[in-house]
Write a protein that binds this DNA or RNA. Structure first.
Lengths: 145, 145
DNA sequence: ATCCAACTTTGTAATCATTACAAATAAGTA
DNA sequence: TACTTATTTGTAATGATTACAAAGTTGGAT
């Protein structure tokens, strides 16, 4: 049982073909905690798949999002969409200096989600809970100057 | 005391000049609950300020965000940045069909913010709490078809 | 094992919101 | 009123993402 089997299972359940490109993207997504962008995925996989097209990366990510297998975190500070393979309710912290993104788990995220789905007039299908600030390292770098 | 005085006060405190363009944008922001984009602000104000440049709208919005007077909500489903003049901690609900955005107030938002600022290694400077789904009207439209 | 229809991948071109830039203009103080 | 500096404007550039059509591949059917 490989870690990416969950993503692959999503593809299979969705009736999508298991191409080498898609499998490689799934593997990268689960072995990567950096919340990658389409660009960064493309760069990393080009070594093993020299012909991999950026369009294919975009298509696969879009398919995985549509299947609910990963989440689209929206644009980072540089204007690039980032993705998250962790789909349990949690917040994401985005460094406004280096664009590093980390997960932050808190029971309040689920409590808020319950409140929104219970009290709002919208039929909720997704969420983004994002906090912006300076990561530890960028705080230290700032102190030096 | 006009409603937009809060935004204007932010500009003044920031040492920025009170140009007619900026005042008009501030007035529109506080009288508008639609969470406008730069484009929509530009279109609405062009009637009274035919020479108003889109660049000026972008510059003014960026300045207001920098001063903490308004919030940048990030991209809507169409890829356009939307702004929110309501700066107390709350969630925003975004309709994935019509792009309507509404405010949703919940005590859990503040509780989560406190948890993040207290427990995370980041020095938090901003937040976006967004939920995606279908608004009431789009749910009804969907049922008809 | 092979075939084939449908789905995928690829590469390029187009899109579109946003940003950069420099000349023209206006705010606000002396 | 005059002047210094910030601001506005219009246009051009940017850059991530999407559209598209031809070439290639998957996976079930034969």
């Amino acid at each position: 049982m490989f870690a990416e089997s969950s993503l692959i299972e999503h593809l299979r359940q969705g009736g999508l073909r298991l191409t080498p490109q898609r499998l490689a993207i799934c593997q990268l997504l689960v072995n990567n905690t950096e919340h990658p962008s389409a660009q960064s995925i493309h760069e990393q996989l080009r070594q093993d798949y020299p012909s991999l097209s950026l369009t294919t990366v975009y298509n696969t990510l879009e398919a995985l999002v549509r299947l609910g297998a990963i989440h689209n975190l929206g644009n980072d500070v540089g204007g690039t969409v980032r993705y998250d393979a962790e789909t349990t309710p949690h917040a994401n912290l985005i460094c406004t200096s280096c664009n590093r993104i980390i997960d932050f788990h808190s029971p309040h995220v689920q409590a808020l989600a319950n409140d929104v789905t219970g009290r709002s007039p919208y039929r909720i299908t997704g969420a983004r809970v994002l906090y912006y600030g300076l990561c530890e390292q960028c705080q230290q770098n700032q102190e030096k100057s």
